[in-house]
Nucleic acid binder design. Sequence first.
DNA 1: CAAGTGCCTTTATC
DNA 2: AGATAAAGGCACT
Length: 296
Amino acid sequence: MKIVLEPSQPFNLDLTLCCGQTFRWEKFGEYWYGTVKDKPLKVRQTGNVIEFEGANTSLVKTYFGLNDDLPLILSKITKDRHIGEVVKTLKGLRILRQDPWECLISYICATYKNIPAIKRMLHNLSKRFGERTVLDGYTLYTFPTAKKLAKASLWKLAECGLGYRAKYVYEASKKVADGQLKIEELKKENYESAKKKLLTIKGVGLKVADCVALFSLEKLEAFPVDVWIKRVMIRHYANHFEKEFIRKISFKKSLTRADYEKLGLFGRKYFGVYAGYAQEYLFHFERMVAKQSRTS
DNA sequence: CAAGTGCCTTTATC
DNA sequence: AGATAAAGGCACT
């Protein structure tokens, strides 16, 4: 099937899938292959045409954020010269609407790991506990359900490379499997309330909760603060904070709860209701710059 | 190439 | 409240 994008609505599939918000898409030839919910999906973009197989148009539009009015969002978050440059460079990157369950487990696993390692963990989990499907001769695995992971042994989860995260994944799986946590329902709640409930899960701190809220619960005002965003704040937004605060977070390796809240609140106040978009643009740009300066 | 550092952090403890 | 340590193991230098 096909979607023809409005010329006024920029979209860049490669950027959207490569910027680090999602971890399980793979490109084979022309097409990107992945699974959404429990179905394999392939997608490619040629200019303003999106071709796909495995889902209906409505799901594809929702999943890839194509219902967002991107020009409006980008104009709202463009508050200064730096973000202006970033937006210009990465225009077309959209926030996905991922499956909340997969997103939760992904970001529990993501703590204190780099992206290649996160991809490896999630691939191992899916290969071992997900459903195997084949599309165009490529083997794809669906993300395992909560029930499936709740029945797995801690030892087998750890074997997927989760390390100490295995117990968090296991506990979260039980909570979701037995209905203690209705994660889909959190979409209906506001940002603060959804975040509060996510924080009751072990292994979910402020950063993970913000990522799940932003990437799967439609909370576009969430502003996750990780090491990269911390660097962005120090490099480009230091004048919005006291010198002493910047000095302190530059020196310290990890943020205190209060430090995190301060940076997150700044992000939401400064960039507004679409702060999450600003976060992802700034995040990806900063990582690209870092990569470039390494290879040059 | 080996060894060291860092990783989209969180929890436990004091 | 804030500081500190510990936690798999992989990826990069």
